[in-house]
Amino acid sequence: MQSLLSHIHLLWELVITSEPIVIMASSPAHCSSMVLALTRIIHPLQYCGDYRPYFTIHDKEFKQFTSTIKRAPPVILGVTNPFFAKTLHHWPHTIRLNDDTGSVQRCKLKKTVPAKIIDYNPGIYTLYKPFLQKDKNIIKNLRMGVSSNRPYEAQSALLKRHLVELTHSFMIPLERYIASLMPLQKNISPFKAAPKPLPFDPERFFMTLESVGPQLTLSNTGIKGDWVGLYKKFFRSPNFKNWFNTRYTELTLKLQALQLEALSKADLKDWLQGRPEVEVIDMVLTMKNKISKCDQHDIPVSEDVKKHLSQRLNDIICALPDDLRNILNVS
């Protein structure tokens, strides 16, 4: 990515918001390596848009991706065929790389839509206006490394560290906010279904940025800009949807685990007194189902909790009349 160092923050924004990008190069190896590099610049956040390191006219999605009827999908394409300059003219962001000759000529930013391309000069063709300012210090440092022939490994380490820090700083406020969606532990009852996490409210999240915003978590001078605008765009991307669904599922399973821990410590013999048979049967079936899910590692609980749950289940079964035990097919 040496020829694109001046625009690394622009590329980071395009990738983290899952914008459609076309990489045009002279060789499959060149475009493929660039596509894969772009999917990794938001690490440790997983890139969840589609990406094709080497896309050709023979791919089955050719008609879908070249159709001008619909908006370009969240895909990063790597192509070499000049024909794509016309068929993908409606895509909003095109990166033309230098010929694969070892040249490290710096790619320029062309403030124009790909449809207006009139030359084949290397560059980034886009009308995208970044939400954030560049970190000029890291760009200067990397350029000095180029001029002083700093080893590629050292250059890569510097760039990776900066991008990881940038992604972490962007995600930390979200991680803190989603952790706050956990209900209080005192609201977890062993005899009721586990509560669900509170819903995600973007406006409430934005209110937290003043005290824990990304600009406060960056260890360097900080990157200024319209962080709220970037988050709003991020919320519409596959990257956010995957991250949120994963975290929300983790919270849900954690709440189920806490409810099972409470149930494993509860006095079910006392709870049984005066309970209608339908409630007792429902409790037995529910506990058997949850113990099964624990065994399948769907719910993260310790072996001690599983053991105590089995004991509580046995307490209930032993207290059942024989005919009811036969109906439940337990002995």
Rank of each mutant, 00 (worst) to 15 (best):
K70A: 11
V113E: 12
F65N: 03
S169R: 00
I327K: 15
L163Y: 02
L260N: 08
L260T: 08
L166N: 02
I317C: 10
T17I: 08
P202I: 13
A266N: 09
S26L: 01
L5M: 09
D50Y: 05
Y51I: 03
A85K: 13
L174V: 01
R247F: 00
L88T: 02
R96C: 08
V228C: 07
I291M: 13
P114E: 11
R150F: 05
E165N: 07
S26C: 01
T101G: 15
E261P: 03
I124C: 03
Q256D: 11
R312T: 11
C48N: 12
G123S: 04
N149C: 13
L4F: 00
N220W: 06
T208K: 14
L45N: 02
S237C: 05
I95E: 06
L38N: 01
D201C: 14
K134V: 05
R161K: 07
T80C: 15
R204C: 10
T80S: 08
T252F: 08
Q133W: 02
A194K: 01
K140P: 00
T66G: 02
T167F: 03
M144L: 15
T56V: 09
L184N: 12
S169E: 00
T39D: 06
R204G: 07
G222M: 05
A29M: 02
H30D: 06
